[in-house]
Design a protein around this nucleic acid. Structure first.
Lengths: 234, 234
DNA sequence: TTCATGGACATTGTATACAGTATCCGTTCA
DNA sequence: TGAACGGATACTGTATACAATGTCCATGAA
């Protein structure tokens, strides 16, 4: 594919460097499809179909699946293929506990490091979030929520922690989905508290607040509805 | 390979089911080789060579590498291949912090759950460990150390946490390598304290002790010696 | 009717082949 | 001497082919 005009367009043969291997793009696409809910929990992931859909051979697809399996986004059974992982209530609770712990640890670190620049950015995000709530712009708030957590993660300056939190967040499923404005308000207020504790340089308080923030957010969501899609999907 | 007597030995064609896919065996072997130090940090992992060594084609090897990359045991650069991951001092410290946090969280859970059966097992391991120390049987103590952490992990009853701790422990490199008896004694004494706190049902104390136990163990080791094997290996 | 049998079909597992890109090294020219 | 060029070589990326296994359904006997 994409060799349509390889004769007319000469172009100095731009040496590789920029195109990522197909396996990575494929992994990215499948991941996005799972996170967006386009691929539903329990749904089978058939290599041939995915390969055709993405216009590649099965090899990059298979490699992408190993990555996704390690991330916990899909479940692979030998010789029987892969399905989109579905969270049991048990596992959802376990995940939440771990995520809360890690977010807490990160907030603790952030409070200790106390990087003024990052704190300014966090303040800015917080203010914009307040405005978004007043105007009931929930979509924007969702972006700002991600921004807040990203900045806070950076403030902790622990890359291992950041990567782990990201993976676990993905596994936890869609974060903000049809939650009401009152939820958004509460959740955002918690952000403010966390930031205050970080700015005040109180690691234990910041940690505790971040921990509870995650648990609260989890509790406010419907109980994950571990709806196995054992019945046909299309 | 292994087709030596495929004509004499008839055998009812034992239906698959028991042999795991080659990719999994290969992943296991490479992982073991890395953890045992047989493959050293910075060493290149060439697909062809590994394939030949294991007597398989490159495909299973490549898939195994995706898994190992997700686990952080190898580092893959597009179009330039994979090398055994080498910990920078920075990353080693980050890992230690996260591991300590998770072990702490697990100890907290264990103290809350308070499962008498598991606690009995832990006590038993502890006692055997004491005996091993008295007799200066360090090899046995190493096994007992693993057993202690495994039982404790089980006591927390959080599978997500357990898996994560295992992965991070692997990434941290060889645990007990040429540490002296005095280290073993200190470390084992810390186990006793942790277990006491768990049995006493004191989650916060147990958490704190487990957290410090990991940091201490890390501090007592040589600073990870991030020796890149940029020079030829064989 | 119900359960076992068997074979067609769908899908995963593995090997092989080839294409594309990096790397190394000798050559040439300034 | 040293730096640019160019080609051989080693390796990764991707596609295709085939083997092995699981799944499903039709068939037939109890």
């Amino acid at each position: 594919m994409a060799d349509s005009d390889s004769l007319t367009q000469v172009r100095p043969r731009r040496i590789g460097a920029d195109h990522a291997p197909l396996r990575d793009k494929v992994a990215e696409e499948i991941r996005a499809a799972i996170l967006s809910g386009q691929f539903k929990p329990g749904e089978r992931l058939v290599e041939d179909r995915l390969a055709e859909e993405f216009g590649v051979s099965r090899n990059p697809v298979r490699e992408a699946m190993r990555t996704l399996a390690s991330e916990g986004l899909i479940e692979v059974t030998a010789r029987r293929g892969a399905v989109v992982a579905s969270l049991s209530p048990q596992e959802a609770e376990e995940l939440l506990e771990v995520r809360a712990t890690l977010e807490g640890a990160n907030a603790r670190l952030a409070a200790r490091r106390h990087d003024p620049e990052v704190l300014e950015q966090l303040k800015s995000v917080l203010i914009r979030g307040n405005a978004a709530i007043e105007a009931a712009r929930l979509a924007e708030l969702s972006d700002l929520n991600i921004a807040f957590h990203d900045h806070l993660a950076r403030a902790g300056r622990n890359r291992v922690l950041v990567d782990l939190m990201k993976t676990l967040r993905d596994r936890s499923g869609p974060l903000f989905q049809g939650v009401g404005i009152e939820f958004a308000r509460e959740s955002w207020a918690e952000h403010a508290s966390i930031l205050r504790a970080v700015i005040a340089g109180d690691p234990e308080l910041a940690s505790m607040l971040a921990y509870r923030h995650v648990l609260n957010a989890g509790a406010r969501r419907p109980p994950a509805a571990a709806e196995d899609a054992t019945s046909p999907q299309e």
